[in-house]
Design a binder for these strands. Structure first.
Length: 110
DNA sequence: CCATTGACTAGAG
DNA sequence: CCTCTAGCCAATG
């Protein structure tokens, strides 16, 4: 087994863990940073596995529109939104208000 | 092995 | 901004 072959899942976890408090990013941004911009779906899949596994702030990862597409995968029904609001992020109708203002691009900031 | 699904995105209208 | 289409790739049945 090669270190390069490391589950890209692990890479996703690393980036997700580096998301600063009160910030959010998109699956595509992470995918792009990992060099798989066309496989944003895989990032979502990785998040699915990271759920309840490590300390992955998956609630800080949303789709490109700032929509909480993955809130359904969390324990409760509104846990994701509450976590975001807890960090000072306004959420309405499953969508982040001023998403562009909170957006954190790993390929840019990291 | 083939078909379907999915926490997505970019482009065109 | 919305809707539709196509591309993407792993997991599941």
């Amino acid at each position: 087994m090669k270190p390069e072959n490391q589950n890209f899942f692990h890479k996703v976890y690393d980036v997700a863990r580096q998301i600063p408090y009160g910030r959010v990013t998109s699956y595509g941004a992470i995918a792009k940073y990992l060099g798989m911009a066309r496989s944003a779906r895989m990032v979502g899949w990785a998040m699915n596995g990271s759920h309840g596994m490590e300390d992955i702030p998956a609630h800080r990862v949303v789709n490109r529109k700032g929509l909480l597409t993955g809130k359904h995968h969390f324990d409760g029904s509104n846990l994701m939104q509450q976590l975001l609001e807890s960090e000072g992020i306004k959420v309405e109708d499953n969508q982040i208000i001023g998403f562009d203002d909170y957006f954190w691009d790993p390929a840019k900031e990291l």
